[in-house]
């Protein structure tokens, strides 16, 4: 889906370039994102840099500057520095935290810049011109519906959740709503902090505690890696499904290979930053209206469509 979009965007771009100068003035899009400190943010950095490169090549009149920051405080300084040096026509930001970034982003907005917010919303939604996010509730819900369907509405589940945050709560809520009304039973649910090592230990403990488990859901793929290793070690064969979420390439590879235990995946794609940068660029080069809210679905990734979500060069 994304890929066709880019092709479309590029085609559109070349048509526009062929037409006599739409605007000669060079536009600057600043992109502020968290530094790569785990798989998902590493994916964000990869896709942001890829988008910057592609857009600069396609539209010589648009400059894209990508800046990564390791913390909320550093991100505040980074966007102040970005705007101090030059005039920014647009800011694409994936905020570290909503509260701390709201005022600094408002200051950029007040200079007349177009503001695109990605993933985590600011405290004041009126600041953003465009909001692009994934759907965490759907990540849980899509997975739950798959299990209800495949287990014929009956079975014992164990769940591993991440770090106590809104993201985690939404995924769990989506999952619980998804299994509501069926006879699927969550035997246990514990935090493993989106960490493979903690997930490995927790899964060992689940296996020791429960003699019969039909399916495991780890609400993130990092944890799923630990879960799979613990199941392999135990030699237990009754576990029909071990599923994750997010779209890590190692797991998408399993889906492509037709893995029995992990046949599907649900995306919360870091490539959403790319969607946001492309749409922001469209505002300048195509005069295409993009103001609004875009919520990317978390559709079921199966063997049939997995290639669309597979980025072999990305770290995630």
């Amino acid at each position: 889906m994304f890929r066709t979009k880019w092709v479309a965007a590029l085609a559109l771009g070349s048509v526009l370039l062929a037409t006599p100068a739409l605007t000669q003035e060079k536009k600057t899009i600043a992109v502020s994102i968290p530094a790569a400190d785990h798989g998902w943010t590493a994916g964000v950095v990869y896709h942001a840099n890829a988008a910057a490169k592609e857009i600069k090549a396609a539209f010589p009149d648009v400059d894209v500057i990508v800046k990564t920051s390791p913390s909320a405080a550093a991100q505040v300084s980074a966007i102040e520095d970005l705007s101090a040096g030059r005039k920014i026509d647009a800011l694409v930001i994936l905020p570290h935290s909503s509260e701390e970034l709201t005022t600094p982003v408002k200051a950029i907005k007040d200079t007349g810049a177009f503001v695109t917010v990605v993933d985590r919303g600011l405290s004041d939604a009126s600041i953003q011109d465009l909001y692009v996010a994934g759907d965490n509730i759907a990540v849980g819900h899509t997975t739950a519906r798959f299990l209800v369907d495949k287990l014929a509405g009956k079975g014992n589940l164990v769940v591993l959740r991440g770090i106590p945050t809104v993201i985690d709560d939404e995924r769990i809520k989506g999952f619980q709503d998804g299994i509501a009304g069926s006879d699927l039973k969550i035997l246990d649910i514990q935090y493993a902090n989106w960490n493979s090592d903690e997930a490995f230990k927790l899964m060992q403990d689940y296996l020791a505690k429960y003699p019969h488990i039909d399916a495991v859901w780890a609400n993130d793929d990092d944890m799923l890696l630990g879960v799979l290793e613990a199941i392999k070690q135990s030699g237990r064969t009754e576990i029909k499904y071990a599923l994750g979420g997010n779209g890590m390439k190692e797991i998408v590879e399993k889906v492509i290979a037709g893995d029995k235990v992990t046949p599907i995946e649900t995306p919360y794609p870091p490539s959403m930053i790319k969607t946001a940068i492309y749409m922001t660029a469209a505002q300048f080069v195509g005069q295409a209206p993009v103001r609004g809210t875009v919520k990317l679905d978390a559709p079921l990734i199966t063997q049939a469509n997995a290639k669309e979500y597979y980025f072999p060069d990305s770290p995630f």
């Binding site: 790569a36 400190d37 785990h38 798989g39 590493a42 989106w194 960490n195 493979s196 090592d197 490995f200 990092d222 890696l225 630990g226 290793e229």
Partner: peptide, 12 residues
């Protein structure tokens, strides 16, 4: 050999 990988969250 346990998980066969090193990540930025290893040993946190």
């Amino acid at each position: 050999p346990r998980l066969g990988a090193a990540t930025p969250t290893t040993g946190l």
